[in-house]
C-alpha cells in the first residue's frame, strides 16, 4: 500500500542565513499546526463520549481523512524526502503537499470553510458526528490558546533528542500553573462536560474481598476489554499485519497498560485488564496472531 501524501508546512524562515533559525522556523510553524489540531479535536471528541478514537483502525482512518482536510488547503503538490538523507532513486521521493502556515488558513474564509468541512468528515471516522458551526466556534476558542501554549513550550527548548531536534524542558507541574492551561480546562468542562478531579483527604484503606480466580466485573468489565482486543486483532488482519499497523497496535496497548500502571489505586479489575493487554502485546510481538484470536475468543 502506497503511503498517503505528507503535509509539509511552509516555513517562513526558510531564507534565514542561520541553519538554526531555519530549523526553528520550520518546527515552529509545523508544531503550531499540531498543537492547534490537538487542542481543537480533544474537546469535540470528549463531548461525544470520545467516539472510537482508541480504536487503532478508526484512528488510522481519521488520520487519513485529516490529511485529506489539510490537502484541501494546499499551496501545491511537491516531492519530499527526509532532511539529512539523500534519495538514491527517483522512486525514493515521497509524494507530499505544501500547506500554508495556520493563520493563512484560519484568516481566509474560503480555506477555513474547506478545512472545517473536511475535518467534520474526518471526525466521522472515529464516530463523532459534529457540525461545521460547532467546529468553527471551537476554533475561535482554542486558536489563541493553542498559539500561547505552543509559544510557551517552544520558548523553553533546551537540549536535543537523539536526532538533533530541540526538545522542550517544560514540566507538567509548570503547565498546570499556566493561565492558558486553566482556560483550556474550562473549555473541557463547559463544552465537553468533563469534571475536575476533586482532591480528597487521604482515605482510610479498607480491604475488599474478591473471590480468588474469579475475573472481577464492572460497568466496563473484562468482557469489553476482550472484545476490544479481538477487534484490534481483526483490524490488524484487515491491514495485512502491516508494520505500521503493528507499530500502532503496540503503541496503543502500551499506552493502555501505562494508564493502568499509573493509577494510584488500581482495582482488581484493572489488574485483570492489565493482564489481558499484556497477553495481547506478547502475541503481537511474537507474531502469534491466530493463536491470539483463538485464546481471546475462548476467554
Amino acid at each position: 500500500m502506497r503511503d498517503l501524501p505528507i503535509p509539509v508546512v511552509k516555513n517562513p524562515k526558510l531564507h534565514e542565513p542561520s541553519d538554526y533559525e531555519r530549523m526553528k522556523g520550520g518546527f515552529y510553524e509545523a508544531g503550531k499546526w499540531s498543537t492547534f489540531l490537538h487542542l481543537l479535536v480533544a474537546p469535540i471528541v470528549a463531548k461525544y463520549g470520545f467516539g472510537k478514537i482508541r480504536d487503532p483502525y478508526s484512528r488510522e482512518n481519521f488520520i487519513k481523512r485529516l490529511k485529506e482536510a489539510l490537502s484541501r488547503v494546499k499551496i501545491k503538490d511537491v516531492k519530499a524526502y527526509t532532511h539529512g538523507y539523500t534519495p538514491n532513486r527517483i522512486d525514493d521521493l515521497k509524494d507530499g503537499f505544501l500547506i500554508p502556515p495556520l493563520e493563512e488558513v484560519l484568516q481566509d474564509p474560503e480555506k477555513r470553510d474547506e478545512f472545517v468541512g473536511w475535518l467534520k468528515v474526518a471526525l466521522r471516522e472515529i464516530g463523532i458526528r459534529t457540525y461545521k458551526e460547532e467546529i468553527n466556534k471551537m476554533i475561535d476558542r482554542v486558536y489563541p490558546l493553542a498559539v500561547k501554549i505552543h509559544d510557551k513550550f517552544v520558548s523553553r527548548w533546551g537540549g536535543f533528542d537523539r536526532w538533533g531536534n530541540p526538545i522542550t524542558t517544560i514540566t507538567k507541574e509548570e503547565v498546570k500553573k499556566w493561565e492558558e492551561f486553566e482556560e483550556y480546562l474550562k473549555i473541557l468542562e463547559e463544552f465537553a462536560g468533563l469534571k475536575r478531579k476533586v482532591k480528597h483527604p487521604t482515605p482510610t484503606r479498607t480491604m475488599t474481598k474478591t473471590p480468588v480466580g474469579v475475573a472481577p466485573q464492572s460497568k466496563r468489565g473484562p468482557k469489553s476489554t476482550i472484545l476490544e482486543i479481538l477487534s484490534a486483532f481483526q483490524a490488524l488482519k484487515y491491514l495485512s499485519y502491516s508494520e505500521e499497523a503493528l507499530k500502532n497496535a503496540v503503541k496503543d496497548l502500551e499506552a493502555k497498560m501505562e494508564a493502568i500502571e499509573e493509577k494510584e489505586e488500581p482495582s482488581p479489575e484493572d489488574v485483570y485488564t492489565l493482564g489481558l493487554y499484556h497477553l495481547a502485546l506478547a502475541y503481537i510481538k511474537k507474531g502469534k496472531f491466530e493463536k491470539a484470536e483463538d485464546v481471546f475468543k475462548k476467554l
Partner: peptide, 19 residues
C-alpha cells in the same frame, strides 16, 4: 526534479505528551 526536505515534529518538541 526539485524536492522539499522535511523534518518531523516530535512530541518532545511541542510538549504534547506533557500537556
Amino acid at each position: 526534479l526539485k524536492y522539499v526536505r522535511y523534518k518531523t515534529v516530535s512530541r518532545d518538541m511541542i510538549g504534547s505528551e506533557i500537556l
